[in-house]
Amino acid sequence: MSALLEVSGISVSFDGFRAINNLSFAIAECELRAIIGPNGAGKTTFMDIVTGKTRPNEGQVLWGENSVSLLKLNEAQIARAGVGRKFQRPTVFEDQTVAENLTMALKAARGPFRVLWWKPGLETEARVTALAMEVGLDAHLARKSGELSHGQKQWLEIGMLLAQEPRLLLVDEPAAGMTLAEREQTTTLLRRLAQRHAVVVVEHDMDFVRRLDCKVTVLHEGSVLAEGSLDHVTANPQVIEVYLGRG
């Protein structure tokens, strides 16, 4: 089976610093993958390249069954192709309700004139309710998003990404700032989403990564240092040296 996303020989430098160094790996359809590594390992730059924010100096990024080059597309085109990204800090419209946030995020052809007269119908309301149930916010549809807890805002943003019908979700440090109960619910959510989407989680929290129970890619100095189960990579002497620390 061909990969959904294939990163091959990617390198990028900023002012002489090589942030990504001949990086190559692939993500399969409906795969849950965790990416870990020390600060400066290239995790954020990798996501910037895949989403079109940063252009590499060399290499290729291929997408889908037809191996479309994402490097030939802009950020909006990449998002429409099915790549969704959630940043660490949730960005929701806090003065709008959960339902309104999800409605605005729905994938639809809405030009400037259509927006003026567009009103949600029964189909839209059903879709919004389904999205809210997916992320555990169906009891909060009428609440202003600013009233939600940090974890609930994270789930709402994931719901807003799902509204765009992505094939790949890039999720940056979802566990940061969450309570233990929220972290457990987020683990369950991400594992469930990976049954229908490819999900790549960039995370520092090893306990959270262990609960994800998925393949782990360790980045160091812009390259893949190790790959495999969490037990496998954390037993690697190089990973212990550069990331986990001796002892």
Rank of each mutant, 00 (worst) to 15 (best):
V50Q: 05
T44S: 15
W63N: 01
E29Q: 12
N39T: 07
N22G: 13
T54Q: 14
N66P: 02
K43A: 09
S67A: 15
G64E: 06
G59K: 03
N21R: 03
F25E: 01
F25R: 04
A41G: 03
V50C: 12
G40S: 10
A41R: 00
G40C: 10
P38I: 12
G40E: 11
S67W: 02
M47K: 01
L32K: 08
A28G: 12
A41V: 07
C30M: 10
M47C: 14
T51R: 04
E31A: 08
G40R: 03
W63F: 14
G52I: 05
G40N: 10
F46E: 04
E58S: 14
R33D: 09
P56V: 06
G37L: 00
E65I: 08
W63S: 05
S67I: 01
I36Q: 00
V50S: 08
N57A: 12
I35H: 01
K43Y: 01
M47F: 15
S67G: 07
I35M: 11
G64I: 09
R55Q: 14
G59R: 03
A34F: 06
G52P: 05
A26Y: 03
L62T: 08
N21K: 00
E58V: 09
I36P: 01
S67E: 14
I49M: 12
L32R: 07
P38T: 08
G64H: 14
V61I: 09
R33L: 15
A34P: 01
D48V: 00
L62A: 15
F46R: 02
R55A: 14
V50E: 08
G59P: 09
I49F: 13
N66H: 14
F25N: 05
S24N: 07
P56A: 05
E58H: 08
I36Y: 00
I27R: 05
A26S: 13
G40Y: 10
E65F: 05
C30A: 13
S24P: 00
S67F: 03
E31T: 05
M47N: 11
A28P: 03
I27T: 12
T54W: 01
M47I: 11
A34G: 13
D48K: 04
I35D: 09
N22E: 14
K43V: 08
I20R: 06
E31L: 06
S67N: 13
G52L: 08
A26P: 00
N21T: 00
V61G: 08
N22Q: 11
I36W: 01
T51I: 12
I35S: 06
N21I: 02
I27H: 08
N22L: 06
F25L: 13
G64S: 13
V50K: 04
E65W: 02
V61T: 05
G40P: 09
A28F: 02
Q60T: 15
F25I: 08
I27F: 12
A41S: 15
V61H: 02
E65S: 15
E58Q: 15
D48N: 10
N22D: 15
L32I: 13
N22V: 02
P56R: 02
